[in-house]
Amino acid sequence: MAGKDSDGVVNRIAVLRADRGVSRRQLAEALGVHYQTIGYLERGEYAPSLNLALRIAAFFEVPVESVFSLAPFPPLR
């Protein structure tokens, strides 16, 4: 399930983490944020800054549009 924040931004952070076998703590350490921040992002309780959104995309080596969207993502096959 994709996280969705109050501004209508959805994300695939949890899906990308699971796909790559990365824990919330590992991702947080790589990004220089608290591990709870990753949980807030995944649940849509917090919208990342542009800087953080770009760093997340860079970590997963995907375009930012593959992580964040204003519309629901189609199901992954």
Rank of each mutant, 00 (worst) to 15 (best):
M1V: 10
A2G: 00
G3A: 05
D7F: 14
G8C: 10
G8R: 04
G8L: 11
V9K: 09
V9I: 15
V10R: 14
V10E: 11
V10G: 03
N11C: 12
R12N: 06
I13R: 13
I13E: 11
I13F: 12
A14T: 06
V15D: 13
R17C: 08
A18P: 00
A18I: 04
A18H: 11
D19A: 15
D19R: 15
R20F: 11
R20Q: 15
R20C: 12
R20W: 10
R20M: 12
G21W: 10
G21F: 12
G21R: 12
V22F: 11
S23G: 08
R24I: 00
R24V: 00
R24C: 03
R25T: 03
R25P: 00
Q26K: 15
Q26R: 15
L27G: 02
L27M: 04
A28F: 01
A28G: 07
E29P: 00
E29C: 02
L31F: 12
L31A: 11
G32D: 14
G32Y: 12
V33T: 11
V33W: 05
H34V: 01
Y35R: 07
T37Q: 09
T37D: 02
I38K: 03
I38V: 15
I38A: 06
L41D: 02
L41V: 00
L41K: 01
E42G: 02
E42I: 00
E42W: 02
R43S: 10
G44R: 06
G44W: 03
E45K: 05
Y46W: 10
A47T: 15
A47M: 10
P48C: 10
P48D: 02
P48V: 03
S49D: 09
S49C: 05
N51I: 06
N51F: 04
N51M: 03
L52S: 07
L52D: 09
L52G: 06
L52R: 11
A53P: 07
L54F: 08
R55Q: 14
R55G: 06
R55K: 15
R55I: 02
I56T: 09
A57Y: 05
A57G: 05
A58C: 03
A58P: 01
A58H: 12
F59C: 13
F59E: 13
F59T: 11
F60S: 13
F60N: 11
E61A: 15
E61T: 12
E61H: 14
V62L: 11
P63Y: 02
P63C: 02
S66A: 08
S66L: 01
S66K: 08
S66H: 07
S66D: 13
V67I: 14
F68P: 04
F68S: 08
S69N: 14
L70T: 14
A71E: 15
A71Y: 10
P72E: 15
F73C: 03
F73Q: 06
P74K: 12
P74V: 04
P75R: 13
L76P: 02
R77H: 09
R77F: 08
R77T: 07
